[in-house]
Structures are given as C-alpha cells and as structure tokens.
Write a protein that binds this DNA or RNA. Structure first.
Length: 510
RNA sequence: CGCAGGAUGGAGCAGCUUGGUAGCUCGUCAGGCUCAUAACCUGAAGGUCGUUGGUUCAAAUCCAGCUCCUGCACCCA
C-alpha cells in the first residue's frame, strides 16, 4: 500500500528559523502524527533550499565557501526541528547528489522534449545587488541609490514553455476542487491564470551565479530557483527508482500562502505535467502569523523567536498554542499574552491540574491503583456520553484540518472530567461509611483516569510528549494507534498510577 | 482601479457550504467546594452578528450596494 506522503516547503538557507518556519513544521508534523495514529504508514519530508544568489553573497560576506555556509545554516534548521519534536522521516538538502541528479534528469527530459528553449532575456541589471530590476522597483520613476550602477543588458537564457500548459492547468484546477485547500485560494490561482502566462526563465549564466546546479545540456548556465527547489519533493523519494511509487503522488504539500501563486500552483504542476508525472493530491495552504495585525518579517524586525517560548514553556505547550490559535488557511495574531493565557488556562488549570488532582486522590483513597468501574449512575453516564458524542466529530475535525476547533472540543471534554469530579466529589465519598459510596469512590477515580487516558490519546498528535507522559502516569507503557484505544473502556483497571506530577508549572510571578 | 481575506457581547474566536431560539475561551461580578498547579465547579451581567436594501413565514447564515481593516515589489511560512 502506498505511504501517506507529506512535505513542508523547504526553507531557504539564507535566513534564520522563525515562527513561520516553526509553524509550518508543527502543522505538518501534527498531520503526519495523526495519520500514523490512524494506522497509516507515513513518509514526512522537510529540508533546505541551499542554492542561489543570496546564499552565495552571504557566504562571501562571511568569507567561507557556500557549502560551508549552508552546513551551518542546515544545522540551525535541523536543530529547530529537533527542538519542536518534528517527526520527519527525511531531510533533503538541495546540494545533495540525489537531488542534483534528479534536477538534471528533469531538465534534460524537458530539453529533449522541446519544452525548454533559449531566448534573449532583456532587463536592467544592478551590479551591486547582482539582480535584475523590475519597473516596480523604481521609486519616483528612478532606481533607488541602493542598487548602485544600473546597466541594461541583454543575455541569452533558457526558458521553460509554461504557457503551453496554461489552458490545461486552468481546466485541471477547475475540475479538481480539492487540489487546493482551503478552496478560496484556488480562486486566486485562477485569477492569476486569466492573464497570459510568460514562459519561465530557468537559467542564469554561470559567471554571475555559480552557486547552482549546472544545466546538463549547457554547462555555462546553472538552473534558477524553482527548477531547483521544487524538485526536492520528488528527488528525495527516489524519482526514477522503483521506490518512487511507494510515496508518490504526495498527499499534501504544506506551504505558505506566499508560495502558492505562482510557484506551486503553476510552475510545479506544469513541471510535473510536462514530465508526465502524476500531480500532487493536494496543496495545503496556510496563512501567516501576524504581530498585532502586522506581518512578521525580517525587514520589520518583529519576529518572535520560537525558541525562547519553547525554552520557557516546553515544546508541547508551544505546539498546542500554534494549533489551537491558528485557523489553518487564515492569518492569526501572535502575542505573548495570548500564549500565556492559553498556557495557564487550558494547559495548566484545566489539564495539568486535573492530572494532578486525579493522581493525588487515587493515591490517597485507592492506594494508587485504578479500581473497577463498578457503578454506573447519572454522572458516569453523562461523562461517558460527552466523550461518545464528541469523539467522531473530533476525528472529523482533525481530518478536515480544523485543529483549532478540534482542540476546543477536546478541552470541553477535559473540563467535563473536572465537572464530573466536582459532582462526584471523591473527597466526600472517602469520608462516607456506606459501602455503595466506597464503590462510587473507586468508580469516580477510575472514570477520571479513563477520561484522561482518552484525552491523552486525542492530544497525541499535537502534544506527543505530554500525551506519553500522561499515559505513563496512568500506567500505560506506550501510545497505541487510535483503533480500539480511542474507545471508552476499562483498560486501566488494575493499573498502578505514577506519582503526582506538575505537567505545566506556573511561571514564577514577577 | 482590480483581486482575495476579514468585520459576531470588554478581548480573542467558532457558527455562515446544507437559513429556524447567537456558542466557546479569556476577562468581570456573585456563589460553591477544598482532592488539586491561589487550581476546580455553578450562576449572572454583557451582543439589534460592520452598514443599507432585497429574497423568505423566518437571515449572523442567501443576494446586491456601501464603509473600514489586511494582503497582492524584494525578503518571507
């Protein structure tokens, strides 16, 4: 059976990891983990885009070779993945041989098929910035000072016949409504495609850009940006080998809204089509984190460093916040206050405190052992029904990328357990001498434990470590796939509970 | 100009596809509880769902106009 294959966009080596990178990784990781828990075999790819002018420049500035520079950058991005507990199965770097080989294969294939041709590329070139300028770069009708000397040059370059596939692409997007998620994004693509498509310039002369993959049919040029970066999705899984079909077609390319049009929706789809490769099943397009309504960007300098929050509050708390707060596809505001509220209120007060009180009472009243669920009265019925009535919907929400509402629903259940504890009041039952109350006491603690077990499993894709920790405290050795484990039962009967634990410590009040 | 997204009690959001008593979290106020991370539970106050008009027995939800916010150069998820 084919694997569930999911990718993030690869990060550009000329930059440092920030919230945006972190979010995309976490989002993709949650989906990957969710699918694994559903029992699927998953292949999760992320990586680094290492070629290009910016990298070449940065490396020169730092007085090192581009490759050495990339190695340092790769280290940074990979350690962010580790910090965030990202479960990727592979990490591709575009300087790897396996990638370059596939890029060359595709280029040669399209060249042979006549889809790549040479033509004059005319434009204004800034020698200082080492880039072509556009009319829109002008300020008050003039090129700004920062570009230095501007010369008009005309040079031959290679082009890819994207225009040839425009009609096909429009039809394809119209016919495949699920190709782009959320759907409204497809409208933007179609809007873009109303204008005639220019053929894509895919090369740069080597004397200007040496840090790239040489064209197989003309060593004087290297390939430019998209023909390099996008190909990672197939080079990483062995395009051209028998293993390729184990993963391809990809189930989700998770990308930011900035690189939907035109790179993924237009260039990538056309490249695949032209090469006779099956198309991705879906592009999952997420929005941006804003800081009080403003985009977070390097130029604005308002980037929140995810590492800081992770260090202080833990990886899972951070992951929870990202998934709880962002409606996938929309933009969301980020603020430390918001984070703090979620952490304290949802995680600390509702969940953490519940674990703590449940364990404490179990030790105090039941010797730290989960007893039988021997009583079934109104409170038990209510709690069990709360679970049974929401579990299917929660699963559906996860499948439909509605993580924020799914988490809301899960925490409604967790609050339901707190309410149950209040109604049953085990601390009162413990004082009673009636034998039915003794049974109620045992049952109530068993119910709380069972509720927590189910909560932990439901939260597993978002908070893998916390989930495991809770299950451990409940005497479960490890996390099982959803299957039968996500059903109200009494699998915990006889389990020995762990010592009381503070899962989400309150930060010291200043 | 055009395109896209957004506008729902003090704050942040869900609901809008498939019209039918407006929901959640935080905050505020009052009460309860004492097992627990000054946590938990209950109740209350607070919204003419941006605006105008239309369709309908009925509209936050469908349709049209308008207003305001955000994005649509490079960088960037």
């Amino acid at each position: 059976m084919k694997n569930f294959y999911i990718t993030t966009a690869i990060d550009y080596a000329n930059g440092s990891p920030h919230l945006g990178h972190a979010y995309e990784k976490v989002l993709t990781d949650v989906i990957a983990r969710h699918e694994r828990l559903k029992g699927k075999k998953v292949h999760f790819l992320t990586g680094l885009d290492e070629h290009g002018q910016k990298v070449q420049q940065s490396a020169r500035k730092a007085d090192m070779s581009p490759q050495a520079f990339c190695d340092i950058q790769a280290e940074k991005f990979i350690s962010m993945c580790k910090l965030l507990n990202i479960s990727n199965d592979d990490y591709i770097r575009t300087t790897q041989k396996r990638h370059k080989d596939v890029v060359c294969t595709l280029l040669q294939k399209l060249f042979d098929a006549g889809d790549i041709y040479m033509a004059e590329y005319k434009g204004f070139y800034s020698t200082r910035q080492e880039q072509f300028l556009q009319e829109r770069d002008k300020v008050d009708g003039k090129w700004p000072e920062i570009f230095g000397e501007i010369i008009e040059i005309s040079e031959p370059n290679y082009f890819f016949k994207t225009s040839k596939y425009q009609t096909w692409l429009v039809d394809f997007i119209k016919e495949n409504e699920d190709f782009i998620f959320p759907r409204f994004r497809a409208k933007q693509v179609l809007e873009f495609l109303k204008e005639p498509l220019n053929d894509l310039s895919i090369s740069r002369p080597k004397e200007r850009l040496e840090w790239g993959i040489p064209l197989p049919f003309d060593q004087n040029y290297v390939t430019y940006v998209w023909f390099d970066a996008l190909v990672n999705y197939i080079s990483a899984i062995g395009y051209g080998t028998p293993e390729f079909s184990q993963n391809w077609p990809v189930d989700y390319h998770v990308i930011g809204k900035d690189i939907l049009v035109p790179p993924h929706s237009v260039y990538w789809t056309i490249m695949l089509k032209a090469c006779g490769i099956e198309l991705p099943k879906s592009l999952l397009v997420h929005g941006w984190w804003l800081s009080s309504g403003e985009k977070m960007s390097k130029s604005l300098g308002n980037i929140v460093n995810p590492l800081d929050l992770v260090e202080q509050f833990g990886t899972d708390s951070f992951r929870y916040f990202l998934m709880r707060e962002m409606n996938v596809g929309q933009d969301s505001d980020f603020s430390a206050d918001l984070f703090f509220t979620r952490y304290t209120s949802d995680l600390g007060n509702d969940l953490g405190n519940l674990v703590s009180r449940a364990l404490n009472m179990s030790h105090r009243y039941c010797g730290g052992i989960v007893k039988a669920q021997s009583v079934f009265e109104e409170p038990e019925k209510e709690l069990k029904e709360l679970f049974n009535n929401s579990i299917e919907e929660i699963k559906r929400m996860f499948d439909g990328m509605q993580f924020h509402t799914a988490l809301d629903k899960i925490f409604t259940f967790i609050r339901g357990i707190n309410r149950y504890a209040e109604v049953r009041a085990p601390w009162k039952l413990a004082k009673s001498t009636e034998s039915t109350d003794a049974q109620r006491l045992e049952t109530s603690l068993a119910y709380m434990a069972e509720g927590l077990r189910l909560s932990a499993i439901m939260l597993a894709s978002v908070m893998p470590s916390i989930s495991e920790q809770i299950l451990g405290l409940l005497g479960q050795s490890r996390l099982e796939a959803y299957g039968d484990s996500l059903v109200w039962g009494n699998t915990l009967e006889g389990s020995k509970l762990g010592e009381q634990a503070i899962l989400f410590p309150r930060p010291q009040a200043k």
